[in-house]
């Protein structure tokens, strides 16, 4: 079985987000880039499967749509235990564009399970996995919280309102994963880090694709105001503030 994991390169989740160019662009100067947390867990699960099933998992590949600057993130995935990587050399402008690039790069290759995160920690679009599956004309299952392979069969759990749905999936398919797929991301071992550069990282040219959406402007949430205290005597003032300022009542 061949496994592919789509990984995106996102700002560290503790980054203080700032914008430039009249709030049209993300200020990248102080950003530390990481593997999108769901993707990192998906890769961790793939590695766990390889560790337990051995040769039955023929290969683990990661794919990223991104400029050369995202290679450190890709090499982190190789250090963790992916066997090889593909980078589609394009700026990941928006969901459709990324899904299209992924589908074009994957089409000519042969994978049994394609894992993608439910959403990315930067734009939270939650759409690449599904769109990519459609473009590949492959079935997809979303919100997967567990994935197991027994006797060549793939079993998955989906989180649904109030419970868990257990399914068997036919390969090839796109598995869109979320919390639970692995407990904690794997920490790369020292040898893994040193070997990462020796593993193949194939760079492919992007396909011609349109963007279906355009970013106009970013808005940061208002900074939290200071705490205000009301005593019993000025309850009326509190009601007034809740009604007129906070517009809660």
């Amino acid at each position: 079985m061949k496994i592919l994991i789509c990984i995106s390169d996102v700002p560290d989740t503790t980054t203080k987000i700032k914008f430039t160019n009249d709030n049209k662009e993300l200020d990248q100067t102080e950003i530390q880039w990481i593997i999108n947390p769901w993707d990192e867990l998906a890769l961790t699960r793939a590695i766990e499967l390889k560790e337990s099933l051995g040769e039955k998992i023929e290969s683990i590949t990661v794919i990223n749509v991104g400029p050369a600057g995202s290679e450190p993130t890709i090499r982190k995935a190789l250090a963790m235990g992916a066997d090889n990587a593909i980078r589609v050399d394009a700026d990941p402008k928006e969901s459709y564009f990324v899904a299209y690039q992924l589908a074009e790069a994957i089409k000519s290759r042969d994978f049994d399970i394609i894992l993608a995160g439910l959403d990315s920690a930067d734009y939270n679009g939650a759409s690449v996995g599904g769109m990519m599956a459609e473009l590949l004309d492959m079935p997809s299952v979303s919100a997967i919280s567990a994935l197991n392979i027994e006797n060549g069969k793939v079993f998955i759990n989906r989180e649904i309102e109030g419970g868990t749905q257990k399914l068997e999936a036919q390969t090839p398919f796109v598995a869109i994963v979320q919390k639970g797929i692995a407990i904690e991301p794997k920490i790369p071992a020292m040898r893994g880090i040193m070997m990462a550069r020796t593993k193949p990282l194939e760079v492919v040219a992007p396909a011609n694709a349109d963007c279906l959406t355009e970013n106009i402007v970013y808005e940061l949430p208002q900074p939290k105001g200071a705490c205000r205290k009301f005593t019993e005597e000025n309850v009326n003032e509190l009601v007034d503030v809740l009604h007129k300022e906070a517009k809660l009542i």
Partner: peptide, 18 residues
């Protein structure tokens, strides 16, 4: 280097988690 940064991060993750 990229490797040095990765090692530092791995050590930090290990220390905080374990």
């Amino acid at each position: 280097t990229e490797e040095q940064k990765m090692i530092r991060q791995a050590a930090k993750d290990f220390a905080e988690r374990e």
